[in-house]
Nucleic acid binder design. Structure first.
Lengths: 146, 146
DNA sequence: TTCTTATATTTGTATATACAATAGTTGTAG
DNA sequence: CTACAACTATTGTATATACAAATATAAGAA
C-alpha cells in the first residue's frame, strides 16, 4: 500500500528531475537556463500584458525568491523590459521584447524536439490518463502558465 | 497531439518539483537537505556494503558532481564514515553509521507522513497505472536506489 | 495630517551547485 | 622498468539559490 505510494511519488520526482535536466542541457547550448526559459514562456503567455515580479513568481515551477535577478539577466540581454508600474509604483511591469520572443522561439524548438523523443512511448489515451492522474494528485493548481 | 505531450511532460516537471519542494521543507525542520537524505537512503539501501562516491552519484536523483561535499557534511555529523578502499586506493568506502541510521529513521517518518497526505487522492489501481506509465515513459532505468 | 500596517521588490549574505582543473592511483604497452 | 592513458575523488572558482533584512510605496486608522 504505502510502498505503492512511495514508488509512485518517487517515480514522479525522478521523472520530473530527469525531464528538467534534459531540457536544461538543451537550453544551455543556446545560452539559457531553465528558469530563464520559464520566465520567457510565462511573459509570452501573457500576450503583451505586463506582469509583476510576483505574478511571474507564482507561475514558476520552482519556488524561487530571486525572480528579480533572473529578470536582471534578461534585461541585460534585451529580452525583456522592466519599468515601474504607473498605477502602483511598488510593482514592476515586465514585458517580453521582440528580441525575447525570437529567442524564445529558438528555445521552444529544442524543447519540442526533446518532447518528440517521447512520441510513441505512450499512446494518446495513455498521455491523457497521465494528465488526469497528475491533476487528481495535485488538485489545487497554484501554478499555471501559458 | 504535441500539446498533449507538452501538458503531460510539463505536468511531470511541476509534480516532481512540487513533491521535492514539499519534502525539502519537511526535511529541513530536522536539519537535513534533500540530497543528504538521498545519500543516506542510498547508503542504507546498500545494507552495510560500502559504496564509492561514484556509485552514490549514479543512484542520485539529481545529477550532481559534488557528492564529495555532501559526504563531507555527513561525515562531520558522524552520520557516515569515509575511508580509503583497500582494494583500490583511488576509491572511497562510504558507509552509513548507527547514528546515521537512527537519523534516517526520523527523516523517513516525516516523508512517510507527507506521503500519507496522498491517501485517497488515487485508488490503488490508479497508483499502479501511474507507476506503469512512468516506467513506459522512461524505459532505461539508469538510476535506482534502495 | 501622522502613525501603523500591509504590500512589492530589491539587496546582503551564506550556502549550494556546476564545471573544469588538479592530484593521486591503477593498468597497460613498449 | 618507464611512459602514457584511464580512472577516482577532490578542490578552485564562478554562478545560482535560499532566506532574511532592507527599501519604497500604498492603504487605512486615529
Amino acid at each position: 500500500m504505502n510502498e505503492l505510494h512511495y514508488r509512485a511519488l518517487h517515480g514522479l520526482i525522478r521523472a520530473g528531475h530527469r525531464v528538467t535536466d534534459e531540457v536544461s542541457i538543451r537550453l544551455k547550448v543556446l545560452g539559457a537556463t531553465e528558469p530563464q526559459y520559464n520566465v520567457l514562456r510565462i511573459l509570452n503567455g501573457a500576450k503583451g500584458k505586463p506582469l509583476s515580479v510576483q505574478e511571474i513568481s507564482e507561475r514558476m515551477v520552482q519556488r524561487s525568491s530571486n525572480v528579480t535577478r533572473i529578470i536582471d539577466k534578461l534585461v541585460a540581454q534585451n529580452r525583456v523590459v522592466r519599468q515601474e508600474c504607473p498605477e502602483n509604483r511598488r510593482k514592476m511591469d515586465i514585458v517580453i521584447t521582440k528580441v525575447g520572443q525570437a529567442y524564445l522561439k529558438k528555445l521552444d524548438k529544442v524543447v519540442v524536439a526533446y518532447h518528440q523523443e517521447f512520441d510513441g512511448r505512450l499512446d494518446t489515451a495513455e498521455y491523457e490518463q497521465l494528465v488526469t492522474l497528475l491533476n487528481k494528485l495535485f488538485t489545487d493548481e497554484s501554478t499555471e502558465d501559458c
